[in-house]
Amino acid sequence: MAYVHITILFTAALLIIIGLYSAIFIDNIIKKIIGISFIEEGVNLFIVALGYAPDGVVPIIMPGMDPAWFAANAAYPLPFGLVLTSIVIGASTLAVMLALVMVLYRRYGTLSTKVMLADTSKQEEYNE
């Protein structure tokens, strides 16, 4: 099971790289946002994989379990708690970004980042 663990870490890295690529190079704003959600998921997967104990048990203590055996075999639950928070934060950030995109689409009529986000710099040129 150990090689699976390593593979999961590499998959998380791959997901982060896919997300970074799309967040930087893809022009469509919705796809950029989807890419950002992939970065977040990759990081979450990485942190959950940190807490994983090969051949272990779920870190919930049941009646009748020996505490010493449980402590030796259970997965580390702290990263899981962190990821729970991080998933919810990611979803709310995504919702705010999509709301801003919907407002901006009404003004520009396009989803292209080059058109939508270029105007501030144009305004600066006009000022100078």
């Binding site: 999961i8 919705i30 946002i33 989807i34 959600s37 998921e41 979450n44 959950v48 994989a49 807490g51 994983y52 104990a53 272990g56 048990v57 779920v58 870190p59 919930i60 997965a75 899981f80 990821v83 729970l84 998933i87 919810v88 979803a91 995504l94 919702a95 999509l98 995109v101 919907m102």
Partner: peptide
């Protein structure tokens, strides 16, 4: 599979249902 059932439940609801619905609404 990584022994985090609570995170799996949250991810299944938020990541697999709510986020796609948000994106679909925006689209």
């Amino acid at each position: 599979l990584l022994l985090a059932p609570d995170v799996a439940l949250t991810q299944a609801i938020v990541g697999a249902v709510i986020v796609p619905v948000f994106i679909a609404l925006a689209v």
